[in-house]
């Protein structure tokens, strides 16, 4: 594609993104906001692909637009009226709970505050753009990207993004799995899962019966291919979770998660647990934490990613269920 065509595409994408973002944020109805947000995520996927970030594009499609969208849609679906209610109304219920502090919700109604904050945001936008243009036009040294490619051979994988995620900056990824675990434990502490959906009719069942195996196959492929091409544990885990979400929507019970509490705990913990175990094993072998021997690195990374995929998928499905699984079987609502 020549430069003019590319420019045309860029302008089109940017305009679509900006107007979708604006429409998402200014929609008066929460449901409309959610749908626009999903559309925004899908267009964003194109932009990432255009900027040569296919790993991110995959993740955005599966997690950013896909699962976040499903979570948000489920939230408006189950509380259509309340989800729309403002925080101001909610705090109104707490009139007996006397708060000495000035409530920011009261302030928000004032026009002056609205305008001050808007002007502040405009100013911030200018400052951001100014600083960013300064940064982009200054000739920054490319040392980090160079040292990534210089060390790629020792990392055990040939996809540089996977190398950064699971080798050079593996510690970030370990903590990120801990973040996922924290979120799901917080969700467990808060509530039980929602009641299920109606059992699906024949058409939907037909779709499910070939879509779910296809998604599982695709997850396995994404996991394996992540070593040398776009893909990896997060995209694969999100794809598996999507299969779970579809099963859930079709009214299937248990959606592939174990019923026993201790098996479920193992599935949730295995991602961060195995990662940590590999790291500590290196320590026991007299190497630094998470310093894989180059000959083993490829296998260890695949092992870690497989465990991570399982935990990620389980976490995302449980987030969609909205709480710890009930002991009783689902009754449809």
């Amino acid at each position: 594609m020549n430069a003019t065509n590319m420019l045309f595409l860029d302008i089109l994408l940017v305009i679509a993104l900006l107007s979708l973002a604006w429409a998402t944020l200014t929609a008066t109805d929460a449901r409309r906001s959610v749908i626009l947000f999903i559309a925004f995520g899908l267009v964003l996927t194109l932009a990432w692909a255009r900027l040569l970030a296919p790993d991110v594009a995959l993740a955005e499609a599966a997690i950013g637009a896909g699962l976040s969208g499903a979570l948000l849609l489920a939230a408006v679906q189950h509380h259509p009226r309340r989800a729309l209610s403002s925080e101001r109304q909610n705090t109104g219920k707490l009139a007996n709970e006397k708060q000495n502090d000035s409530n920011p919700a009261d302030l928000k109604s004032s026009v002056a505050i609205r305008w001050t904050l808007t002007l502040f945001c405009i100013a911030l936008a200018f400052v951001l753009i100014w600083a960013l243009l300064q940064a982009l036009s200054s000739e920054t040294s490319d040392t980090l990207a160079q040292s990534v490619s210089a060390n790629l051979a020792n990392s055990g994988v040939s996809n540089p993004v996977t190398a950064v995620l699971l080798n050079f900056r593996a510690y970030d990824t370990l903590l990120e799995l801990a973040v996922l675990l924290t979120a799901v434990l917080g969700i467990f502490a808060l509530s039980e899962q929602r009641t299920g959906y109606l059992p699906a009719g024949p058409v939907f069942n037909g779709l499910v019966s070939w879509l779910v195996p296809a998604l599982i196959l695709m997850a396995g492929y994404l996991l394996w291919v992540g070593a040398h091409a776009p893909g990896g544990a997060f995209q694969a885990g999100a794809t598996l979770a999507a299969a779970g979400v579809i099963l859930r929507l079709a009214g299937k019970r248990n959606i592939g998660l174990p019923v026993s509490k201790s098996y479920l705990n193992i599935i949730l913990v295995i991602g961060s647990g195995l990662f940590l175990l590999v790291g500590l094993t290196m320590l026991a072998l007299g190497r630094p934490f998470l310093d894989y021997p180059p000959a083993m690195a490829g296998y260890l990374i695949l092992l870690i990613e497989t465990a991570a995929m399982i935990s990620i998928a389980a976490t995302l499905i449980l987030a969609f269920l909205g709480g710890r699984p009930r002991n009783r079987e689902d009754r449809s609502c």
């Binding site: 058409v203 779709l207 879509l211």
Partner: peptide, 13 residues
């Protein structure tokens, strides 16, 4: 094709 026909059916239903 499969996705859009199934989802159109579901929306209509």
């Amino acid at each position: 094709l499969a996705a859009s026909s199934a989802s159109a059916y579901l929306i209509a239903q």
